[in-house]
Design a protein around this nucleic acid. Sequence first.
DNA 1: AACTCGGGGAA
DNA 2: TTCCCAGAGTT
Length: 375
Amino acid sequence: MNMLLLYCGIFSAVRGKDKDMSDVKRVDDTWVPLLLQWFSVHCRELPWRGGTRRDPYKVWVSEIMLQQTKVEAVRPYYESWMERFPDMETLAAASADEVLRQWQGLGYYSRARNLHQAVQEVVASYDGKVPSDTAELVKLKGVGAYTAGAIASIAYGRRVAAVDGNVLRVFARLYNIEENILSGAVKKEITDLVDNVMPAACPGAFNEALMDFGAQVCVPRQPHCEGCPLSSHCLARAAGKEAVLPLRLTKKNIPTEDITVVVCTRQRKWLLHRRPEKGLLASMWEFPNAGGAGAEGIGAVTKLLQSVGLSVVVGAAEIAAVKHVFSHKIWRLHVYRAKAVHGHLQAKEDWQWLPVTAYTEVPWAGPHGKITAVL
DNA sequence: AACTCGGGGAA
DNA sequence: TTCCCAGAGTT
């Protein structure tokens, strides 16, 4: 069966927008009928796509299950779910344990709990009818901007965007958007683009077409540009960047380093060390420190100080813990006091006893500057 | 804006 | 291993 015909009545009225709105920025949307034509042939047969009228409950369940989850993983769960909970009343009456059991293995289990609660709310407070307005939909537990748009457009034919990972990727390529698609700004930019090019005749089919297209043709790696019906409209391809877009910058896991710091005080002076002229925090002053935490860290600092002629006894208590985030690493500074300092500091330019009153006069390594505030 | 939340398939 | 998937809630 051809879903497109149900919602679109063929790809005719795709340009149903007002061409006289001069202050609205126009973008190229001539590819839209090509996408719809592609979808009319290549749309996937999915269990939640049957029927002449899309049941809002079925659309809702499928959209929740599909969050961060591949279609093939969802398919058996959806079938089983609909056998057990064929309508919202049945689901609302079910126990939380039974709902969770049906979800077992699919992951992100808060989706099941939220869906259960939201359906109970719809049954109790919405006369058993799923809202058609996105402003109402997003009030439901587990329904965000994407899911609200998907339900409103697919089940109710509302002209609303549903921007998911597929849509972000497809638009980043079509319009050669080189910024990070995971940023809020780019997501808004693409949402505006979708709103701008969305055909009035078949919003739901258009949204589904974008996702099917992203899943089958404009795939994340090595997009199938040969044979892509939109390749001649693709600005990324024109720029030769179809393989490197979209840009997805995730917060990379930056390593955390434990560093033990020992504050040595003598005659109202602090023992300080100047960092090497090259590298991190070059030439800035810091308290004596060494890598490691606990006894290991204290031992390392003690050994370091012995190498410059000082013998110290470090207090047992950690007097402060300072966290400092760099772009590429995190320092956890464990700060101790030296109870006693013996010996004479060897004459070295990068080791000094500095009056505590002069601490504002030297360049402090940032993390150690935080320690002076604690002291 | 960054974290957390599951699990599976693909490169 | 790493990436990515029809994201949303929390902090």
